[in-house]
Amino acid sequence: MKTNSLWKDSFKQLARDKISLISLLIVLFYALVAILSATGIIAADWSKEVGGSNLPPSFEHFFGTDFLGRSVFIKLIRGTQIAMSVGLATSLIAIPIGVVLGAVAGYFGGWVDDLITWLYTTFSSIPNIMLLIAITMILGKGLFAVYVALGATSWVNLCRLIRGEVMKHKEREYVQAAGAIGGGHFRKLFIHILPNVTHIVIINTSLQFQVAIKSEVILSYLGLGVQGEPSWGTMIDDAKLELAKGVWWQLAGATLAMFFIVLAFNMLGDALRDSLDPKLKGK
């Protein structure tokens, strides 16, 4: 007997859509590159001189070389690792905080809600870029500071969304019914309500991931990000002075590398919203 959960239905719809399928493949490809680079299988020797300084793109060096004669292509791979790790770390910080605080605030209401609402209102009152700059400046330059800074700014939105959605579901009759059969708060919140708001986490993470990647590039460009290793942001910083000399390949490489992954996450986020959000069903 054929049966379809809402999840299965959604993913079927997603798989039928070629654009989102391609987006998913791009994301998986970047993830694979990042893992291979992180484990040292590829791009471990990124700092090696492979040719002359500032060589234009050729079959030997797809994106040419930088002023130290290092391969821009291999540096891009290394940058992929940094970018993906920032996206992942941000999600790992933001999801637990956002989901737990949002769910608790929405479900219990009262002073718990007041407290958590105050907390995220406060955090969202400091413009993101200022908070990012302040945190990275205080914690010292480097990847760790970038993780913390992006984590600290990105839970807010998720928390607010989850809170609102949990509040809505709390009043639904299926949750009341769970109470009527003897289920407690834990069961109502975690077994009944949370699976019904998970789509928000997925959609939000997909969109938040690309925001994190974009932010990392800017922070690295400002010199606040990763030190002593290539990232797309530092590569663009290098290119700033080279462009006038006609050396465009470092800028082009970093921009393209970032373009595809951000585009893929954007497309995927939109497609996920279309297929997972029950509100949009039947339109």
């Binding site: 460009y221 006038a244 921009t255 951000v262």
Partner: peptide
């Protein structure tokens, strides 16, 4: 819109400044 948003702000600035001003 989505493609435009996927290009780094830095790239826009660098390119526009280089091309239109320089």
């Amino acid at each position: 819109c989505i493609a435009g948003m996927s290009v780094s702000a830095l790239a826009y600035i660098l390119f526009f400044q280089y091309f239109f001003a320089f």
